[in-house]
Simulated scan of single mutants.
Amino acid sequence: MIYKNKAVIVTGAGRGIGRAVAKAYAGEGANVVVAELDRELGEQTAEDIQREGGQAVFISCDVSREADTEAAVRQTVQAFGTVDILINNAGIASPHAAAFYELSAADWDKVMNTNARGCFLMGREAAKVMRNNPDGGVIVNISSTRALMSEPDTEAYAASKGAISSLTHAMAITLGPDGITVNCILPGWIETGNYGALREIDHTQHPAGRVGVPGDIAKACLYLTSPDNRFVTGAQLVVDGGMTRKMIYEP
């Protein structure tokens, strides 16, 4: 088990993709920190991992707050001795659904601060520890295919995910000499709700033949953080069932 006793922080691990990622690493023997703003959800993820025989602790963390990110990394080191892997998953869409012309600066800032600033702050603090590890460390940022394409009225979210993708290659260049690799994953449609309620067309429009599930992103994280794949850095891994490669014409 290549992740046995590795210290892994997963932000936004209370639900959806983050929860699946946290459970995947715990299943591989890692010591997992569930960094989550929602205490009830975060504690539930940690308890579920422990019930299944894994190692996990919950740490309350608002990734947009510098003090919270510093505390999360500090508490991880106190609990598990170091930080080996960081999965920057925490993210939000605009808190108030609004068309472009009504999008407030406050909502724009909240999305950018949580998504892009959060990746920077957590990455910076984790890297301060990783650079002292014999084997360095690995950071994976969760971006989105919205960094490459958009639907109407998604400006804040798209901009934040584009920032994450650019931040990833900048960090990879900066942190490479310290033995730290940095990559990002761009999920497409990953259904975190009722998968059984999806329509046939939802699946068949994907070249892969189905809508994605959180476990698809967890597998991608395990790939990018494997010691066998340390030659991969600064990369954007699109995990979307082929949708961004599908040419679509209006009928």
Rank of each mutant, 00 (worst) to 15 (best):
A26Y: 04
D84N: 14
M112P: 00
S143H: 01
K6F: 09
E52P: 00
A13K: 02
E250K: 14
G179E: 09
A105D: 08
A20W: 01
R146H: 13
Y157H: 08
V211T: 13
L167F: 09
P95Q: 08
S143I: 02
V10C: 01
A105C: 05
V63Q: 07
M149L: 14
A158Y: 02
A7N: 12
R210Y: 12
V232T: 14
F100T: 15
V32M: 09
V232C: 12
Y249C: 08
D68I: 02
P207F: 14
N229K: 05
G193Y: 03
D216E: 09
P214K: 09
T181H: 06
R131N: 04
D178L: 11
R74S: 14
C61D: 06
E28N: 08
N183F: 05
E36M: 07
K110H: 14
S150N: 10
A218L: 05
Q236D: 12
F100P: 04
G53M: 01
S60N: 10
E47P: 00
A20D: 05
S226I: 01
T174E: 15
A220G: 09
R230W: 04
K110C: 11
D240K: 10
A220S: 11
M1W: 06
G54I: 11
K128D: 02
C61T: 15
K110I: 01
D178K: 13
R15C: 04
M1D: 12
E28T: 00
I9D: 01
V138G: 09
N229G: 08
A7H: 07
T233N: 12
V73N: 07
D68L: 05
Q50N: 07
A71K: 15
V34T: 11
D84W: 01
V129E: 06
I17R: 01
Y3I: 03
A71E: 13
R51E: 14
A56E: 02
G18Y: 04
E125R: 10
T45I: 06
Y3V: 03
D228P: 00
I9H: 06
D62E: 13
G123S: 11
G241I: 07
A99H: 15
R124M: 06
A126K: 04
K23F: 05
